[in-house]
Design a binder for these strands. Sequence first.
DNA 1: GCATTAACCACAG
DNA 2: CTGTGGTTAATGC
Length: 226
Amino acid sequence: MDKINCVLCKEKSTASCILSSEDLESLSNNNTQVQFRKGDIIFRQGTLSTDIKYLKEGLAKIHKTGPSKEKIINLVKGPSYIGLSTTLADKINRYSVTALEKCTVCFISNETFKNFIIRNGKFAWEIILDICKKELEDAERFVDQFQKQVPGRLASTLLCMANKIFMNDSFELPLTRAELADLNGTSRESVCRILSDFDNDGLIQLEGKKMTILKADLLCEISEKG
DNA sequence: GCATTAACCACAG
DNA sequence: CTGTGGTTAATGC
């Protein structure tokens, strides 16, 4: 729990970049930075939601316990706010967020954040944009989940990991097969089978969790055709 | 009918 | 935690 200086922060959100130096000073005074290890829960479904959370660095999963099992809603890579919706719209967290690797999270006092929104239209605008982008992405994934077949969904997540999360065609899978299943709305067994199909067909190279995408174009085709 | 897709179960590393 | 095989149910020629 270091005392932090938001003025010097290099991972500021687009919204925070708009803040005046006095506001950034006030942000520094109402902000606690916490480190999480891989596997640590950053906040948990069903518990009291307190502060605004900003994932400064690291990768985390947003997940929710449904009627029968766990569902991974999405992965978030810092820098990004996490859980704005559940923090602002309810007092009780509707979902959980768990660190998939070492994560640095800023806990910002709700009151401070609210003041920025109310007093600073440009700040508020950036936050709204952020929420809108997320909602759009959610809509896409929602439709895909219902209209694409499992190989298509899996191909999409692999491409997303390569292009948006790791910026590399070669990476370490941040999820177990069971988690990949929970993310894609399928079963662990189907994930195993489809991954080994992709591997056998030379689309990817997979050894344990070491993933290399060999034919991104074909994977892309699969993800689009569904 | 016959093929495909994918879930569920079981069992073995 | 993973990989496979068998089984079963739904859906589409």
